[in-house]
Design a protein around this nucleic acid. Structure first.
Lengths: 208, 208
DNA sequence: CAAAAAATGAGTAGTCCCACCTATTTCGAG
DNA sequence: CTCGAAATAGGTGGGACTACTCATTTTTTG
């Protein structure tokens, strides 16, 4: 007889925690679920009763999910950890993945997103929910912000599939000016190849 | 005192229907929910007790959601209808929206997707879940399928940001061949402008 | 097999973009 | 005010794609 998968939950929001328990009991009925609304209690419990996988909220009092991840991983290196949060900020996500978490799921994602995440992570894989994936693979906002106003403006025009000539005509400047700006933008963004700038512009419409 | 919103449910899959009821009771507790596992029963009930909104599955015995939509709309023109299904086929979706449904939600979407859909539709709006939106706004598969194998292959390479020269080298053919194919592809897809082909390739990676 | 479709290759002219220059003007921050 | 960043513009050379047209070979298909 296989021992049941032990899932540790840590979320300070009681309503959400309740919903989470319901979902897991329904989706994965063969699990032992240990819910905690306090990260400290969760940590103490985990040390005495090592779970297979921990699902952690990020925003908790006393100790946040980041610190909890670190502590759990140092105590129980083989423990799988999935972060379940509302945050989508790339920087946060990157630092969390660096801390050794195995999964990252956004709270307003589909329920099955979490379930597939759990299954994938238990098998030794890594799971990052797709909208998050998009964010972290998108370029640093900081780099985009290093562009000047006009450069930014021109980048927008490029995203609209306009040629340098068209942009020049609209802005009442010389083509050469636009070409210079394109050059500068490409250099700042470390892009090369004739199409890479257009691709960048298309990929990052919403951030420009 | 405002009368409660009356929601009619029709889904032949009992487990899913149960889950749906749970979710709605939790998310919208002020609703009167009338669940049916049979579309005929749902229709008969709706005529006697007109609901505000109907959430219908597509794949049902006796009568599918499409026919049900038509009948409901002819009996109760002001009734709002949301289709809740697993289908993502653009053709199906298009015909459904043509039949007068107000919303389209994929079953494996997030729960809140359905709730926001209900709210939006009740306010008189239309709601189509984002992955579906992507599909139906994407170009006709038929046009893409009119491309020959090599043309398709080349389009894939273009989507990978490769130049004609690079593609030619990989396929051991002349650059001219590739350029010819590009031309033919552009003509078939009715594209013009130097970047439109790349844009198309990038936009439709998954369909090529 | 014979006709049609597809793939291959070439030529020419023109556009667009890149990369690397230089130079002038404008304008804001120290 | 002055220094420097930003915007403006011009030049050159080269790479890449478009838009045509034409021709040959291979493959598919009726």
């Amino acid at each position: 007889m296989k021992t049941a998968v032990k899932i540790l939950l840590a979320d300070d929001h009681p309503i959400f925690l309740k919903g989470l328990i319901d979902v897991l009991q329904e989706e994965m009925p063969d699990c032992e679920i240990d819910p905690f609304s306090s990260p400290l209690e969760a940590l103490q419990f985990a040390i005495r009763n090592p779970p297979d996988i921990a699902i952690l909220d990020l925003d908790m009092p006393e100790m946040n999910g980041l610190q909890l991840t670190t502590k759990l991983k140092s105590e129980l290196p083989s423990l799988k950890i999935i972060i379940l949060t509302m945050h989508k900020e790339p920087d946060i996500i990157r630092s969390i993945l660096a801390k050794g978490s195995d999964g990252y799921v956004i709270k307003d994602d589909a329920v099955n997103e979490l379930v597939t995440a759990i299954k994938k992570v238990l098998k030794g894989g890594q799971f990052i929910s797709t909208p998050v994936m998009k964010e972290i693979t998108s370029p640093d906002q900081t780099i985009i912000q290093s562009l000047t106003k006009t450069e930014n403006n021109i980048l927008k025009q490029i995203a609209l599939q306009k040629s340098s000539r068209e942009i020049a005509e609209e802005l009442f400047v010389s083509i050469k000016t636009i070409e210079n700006h394109r050059n500068n933008i490409s250099r700042k963004l470390k892009l090369q190849g004739s199409n890479s700038l257009l691709k960048f512009a298309l990929d990052n419409k919403e951030f420009i």
